[in-house]
Amino acid sequence: MSVDERAAKRELESEILTRVVAGDVDAFEYFVVTYQKRITRFVYTLLRDPADADGITQDVFVKAFRALPEFKGQSAFETWLTRIAINAVRDHIRRRKPVVSFSELRADPDDDGPELPAAFDPADGTSPERDLLSRDIRRRIAEALVALSPRQRAVFVMKHYEEKSIAEIKVVTGLDEGTIKSHLFRAARKLRERLEDLR
């Protein structure tokens, strides 16, 4: 999105926000429709549970709606929404303790997960051995991810799944650069522990 497009979007959203805050509740649906997929994807990547992703996404918008009077538009609405999503996921994880690992959610340990759309399957076309290795590592990446602390998980997903820059993560989380890098480093180290035999 270009700078002009971003400015136009903020302008548009600012107008809609004004209407919502003035009492036009239905106008809020613009934000739901515009950002529901992005928030659902983010929460699902963090939790790997479709039902939770759906429920928490709805919860995020309800929370955002109730907090709207405090939102002045100095930050992008999406940034603000993401912050609420991170906090909602964190609260969900805390409430849900003890943490159930990704593997435990599966009844069949041999299940490699969903069939992937061909375009998303980088193992497609390589050797069967390579396919198996990739799927095994993928499972362990997912296991390592859900074993991270909520904060590490959020930072790691933003960086490596959403390809946000450190600066962008800083804006969303309010964490300083050193802390973000530290989370990334520690998350990668935990990942490595799960992949010890890779070498």
């Binding site: 790997r48 759309p117 375009a119 998303f120 399957d121 993928r138 799944y161």
Partner: peptide, 8 residues
């Protein structure tokens, strides 16, 4: 693979 799967 993982990123594509969750996205997909």
């Amino acid at each position: 693979l993982d990123r594509g799967a969750v996205s997909g």
